[in-house]
Structure formats: C-alpha cells, structure tokens
Design a protein around this nucleic acid. Structure first.
Length: 262
DNA sequence: ATGGCCATCGCGGATGGA
C-alpha cells in the first residue's frame, strides 16, 4: 500500500503533472491515496472526471484562488469530513476519509496547515489556533481509528535537520519553537514521523523556494510530512521524497512524499 | 547586500506563499 502527499500549488496548472506522476508510480506500485494541497479551485472546477478516467476516486474540498485540499484514491472514500469539526474556518484546509472496511480500514487526514507568515502576525496567531483545534479533533479521530495517517503540507519543520540554514532561519516561520512544540504535541497523541522511521541522506527536503535557485542549491526545508499510528508504523516499509517532479518544467515548489506499507 | 519566483485575478500590480 502506498500513501502520498503533494502540495501542487494550483491543480489547474499541474493536473497533467499529477496524472503523469500517478501513472509513473503505478509502474512499480500504484498510489492508494494521494493527498493534494493548494488545489486553488472552487468545488465546481475540480477535475473529477480526469481522475475518474485515470481510474481514481476523489474527494475534494475546494476554495477559489487560495488553499483547497483533495484526496485521490483507488478505492472510494467513506465518512468524508471537511475542515476541523467545531472550528469554523473560511479556509479549506482539511479533508479526511476512510478507505477499506473492518480491520483493513485506514483513516486518512489530508491537511494544508496555515503558513503563518511571521511570528507575532495575525496569521501566526491563526496558525496557533488552528493547530490547537486540529490537535483536539485528532485526539478523537485517533480514538476511533487505530490505523490513521495524517499527511500534508504542515508548514513546520521538526528540527534543524529539516532546514537548509538552521542558524540563519532560527525562529523564523516554519522553524520557531512554538510551531515545533505544536508538531510534537501531535506526535505525543501517538503518531510517528514516517520519514524518520528510515535512514535518509542529510538535507533531505520536500520544499524549495522558487527564487535564488533554491532547488538547484538544495536550499530547502522538510515541511511536508506523513504521520502514522503504531499500527501503520508496524507496516511501514519505506518513506521517500520524490524529487523528480521538482525538475519538471513549471514545477510545484513542493515535491511529493510517499509512504510504502506492507 | 538586496531580492531575485510563481499563481491568482484580471489586464496593472497587489496579495499570498514559505
């Protein structure tokens, strides 16, 4: 089984890249659930038919111009939840669904965490409120779903190993202790960073700034994560960032992350 | 040293991203 997450920074621009990537993945093993972020589409513009023709189901939660998330899957989604229950939000950032049934059921939460702009800003305060609400809801989801994966663009680094210039970016957005404490609080609910279950070269990142030849110089951060429960950790066989799509013409600034499970 | 890109809306240039 394969789970993947990719911030594609506009699905209208990069739908062909997503379909190509899914087809390429399928040459080894097909992706079972792909979480997309920043689709930047209203619900009526979602290309459901294109995914259907490629053999995938989809559940989506769109928004015009900004944000927007989707789950693309080989089997149909059940019990779909949009955004965080009990946390009214104008911004479309979360979609959850269950795949399979009974002892095989896997709960997937796809999320586009707020950017936060800068510590001290209104957007940072919103990010903190959002993280608190996510944690409270996640606790109840974990009570119901032993096999659960939370994946998406977290807009938070775990620690300095996830940052190309940890000293220069100390306490800047994505790298503050306050954000990292929230991320650890999610982990403390009983989740594991799938990436860190396996060895990786130093400076393995998932996002690179479009400017300053960021990708070519590997000036990036690891802010796209897949978090799994004990039951899924036990089945995990690999977790990789696929840098290939970042080399496409007109790439997203993020690369997909893929978790493979037995 | 600074900011250097990209998408959106909409048709210039502001806003947001990270």
């Amino acid at each position: 089984m394969k789970l993947a997450t990719w911030n594609i920074n506009s699905l209208s621009v990069r739908l062909p890249q997503v379909l190509d990537w899914l087809a390429k993945q399928a040459q080894t093993a097909p992706v079972d659930v792909l979480a997309l972020q920043e689709i930047k589409l209203s619900d009526d513009k979602f290309p459901a038919q294109a995914f259907e023709e490629a053999g995938y189901h989809a559940a989506w939660f769109g928004q015009k111009t900004y944000n927007g998330v989707a789950l693309v899957s080989r089997t149909p989604p059940f019990d779909v939840v949009r955004n965080i229950p009990g946390f009214p939000d104008e911004q479309a950032r979360v979609i959850a669904a269950t795949y399979g049934a009974g002892d095989d059921a896997v709960r997937v939460i796809g999320a586009y965490f707020p950017n936060g702009q800068a510590p001290g800003s209104d957007k940072f305060a919103y990010k903190m409120r959002w993280l608190q609400a996510l944690r409270e809801w996640l606790a109840s989801e974990l009570g119901q779903h032993p096999r659960l994966a939370l994946m998406g663009d977290f807009n938070i680094t775990f620690d300095d190993a996830d940052v190309w210039d940890p000293e220069g970016l100390r306490e800047t957005i994505h790298c503050t202790n306050e954000e990292r404490a929230h991320l650890q609080a999610l982990i403390a609910l009983g989740l594991h960073d799938a990436h860190r279950l396996f060895p990786h070269p130093p400076k393995t990142f998932s996002w690179w700034d479009y400017r300053m030849l960021g990708f070519q110089k590997n000036r990036g951060m690891r802010i796209d994560h897949i978090l799994v429960t004990d039951a899924l950790k036990a089945r995990a066989t690999g977790c990789e960032v696929d840098r290939a799509p970042r080399k496409n013409p007109q790439p997203s600034d993020h690369a997909p992350v893929v978790l493979t499970l037995a």
